[in-house]
């Protein structure tokens, strides 16, 4: 099967769109009709064919456009990609993980040939061919983490493990849900999660950290996280908040279905071999409400989740001001029928 890549934008004229197949495979994050924080971590096992869990690093119809958008963001602000000096080895580990996974999972799109430390990488969708020496950063156009994350959908953080904690010491972050790598780089697990309300008191981070410290090679895990975004915008960074913030106030009863997106992060965590660091890719999926309600179960459930969400969480996730409009729109797709368990569509 050859994949078709959308010609689309994530800013200005916002031509981003999901094909019917992309809607069906959207990782809807709610497995019940209500939501509260939990350590919802499960093994990152190979999922059903066609699902976003089928491959280790999902490549979909938005790949080329997302990489183009990342390039624009980096041109404006190169500090979205940073690596503290001791993280270069982790960068190589991550480059290897992605190249090996993609070449095995998508042989028609990616090729990797290795002869000792002499590597040859071919990325067909982006038209890249690169010969380089593994562990020699001067043989690549930029550092290893930057090199591979310019070719991998999602944000990526590399976490150093020491002193019984994880430290966000490197990352490529251009499609974040309102946090700044430039500000947070160097922080430990509790510090970079400090602004998250409620979860600290629930002990969520203590338990999650304990679990992640013992994460093992070859046994990656995943979880889904979510928020709401007006317009299909990847760069909802605090850096540019004053530029995209006004768009949040343009929602009306007439356009909410088309302009309001459910934004889901597929977060995976991987123990890496040489550096003992943890790789933390955060892959973002966007789905307009009017597309989402084409799956009746999702329309019903999202209505109930957002209607009943505690105010504090709506505030933190940044959509409190638009909640009445959103809930009102979704209520039209909730016939009060019971919903089935799990996240997948019924039919």
């Amino acid at each position: 099967m050859t994949m078709r890549f959308n010609d689309e934008t994530f800013r200005d004229d916002y031509t981003f769109h999901n094909s019917p197949a992309a809607i069906r495979r959207f990782p809807f994050p709610f497995d019940q009709d209500s939501y509260m924080y939990s350590v919802n971590i499960e093994p990152h096992r190979r999922g059903a064919a066609g699902s976003v869990f089928q491959h280790r690093f999902d490549v979909d119809e938005h790949y080329v456009a997302e990489m183009r958008d990342r390039e624009i963001t980096l041109r404006d602000d190169p500090l979205r990609c940073q690596s503290l000096p001791h993280m270069e080895l982790a960068g190589w580990d991550f480059l290897e993980l992605v190249m090996v996974s993609k070449a095995e999972d998508y042989p028609e799109l990616f090729e990797l040939h290795r002869d000792g430390d002499r590597w040859h990488w071919i990325n067909r969708p982006l038209g890249i061919e690169q010969r380089f020496i593994f562990l020699d950063a001067t043989s690549l156009p930029c550092g290893p983490m930057e090199y591979i994350t310019r070719q991998t959908q999602g944000d990526h953080a590399l976490l150093d493990q020491r002193e019984g904690n994880l430290w966000m010491d490197a990352g490529m972050v251009t499609s974040q849900a309102d946090w700044s790598l430039d500000f947070d780089i160097g922080m430990n697990f509790f510090e970079w999660h400090a602004p998250v309300p409620k979860a600290h008191e629930l002990g969520v981070f203590q338990r999650a950290l304990k679990f992640l410290l013992s994460l093992q090679q070859g046994a990656p895990v995943r979880r889904l996280n979510w928020t709401m975004t007006v317009n299909p915008r990847l760069d909802t960074s605090p850096e540019n908040y004053h530029k995209w913030g006004p768009e949040k106030r343009t929602l009306t009863a007439g356009n909410v279905g088309a302009k309001q997106y459910l934004r889901v992060e597929l977060q995976t965590l991987w123990r890496m071999p040489r550096s003992n660091a943890v790789a933390f890719p955060i892959r973002c999926y966007l789905l307009a409400l009017e597309d989402l309600v084409t799956v009746p179960k999702w329309g019903r459930r999202l209505h109930r989740v957002l209607r009943d969400l505690p105010d504090e969480l709506a505030e933190y996730k940044g959509f409190a001001v638009n909640r009445p409009l959103i809930v009102d729109y979704l209520s039209r797709f909730d016939d009060c029928a019971p919903t089935s368990a799990g996240i997948f569509p019924d039919d």
């Binding site: 503290l84 001791h86 080895l89 150093d160 020491r162 003992n276």
Partner: peptide, 8 residues
């Protein structure tokens, strides 16, 4: 690895 080098 429970006895890793501190790479800093």
């Amino acid at each position: 690895n429970l006895f890793a080098l501190d790479l800093r």
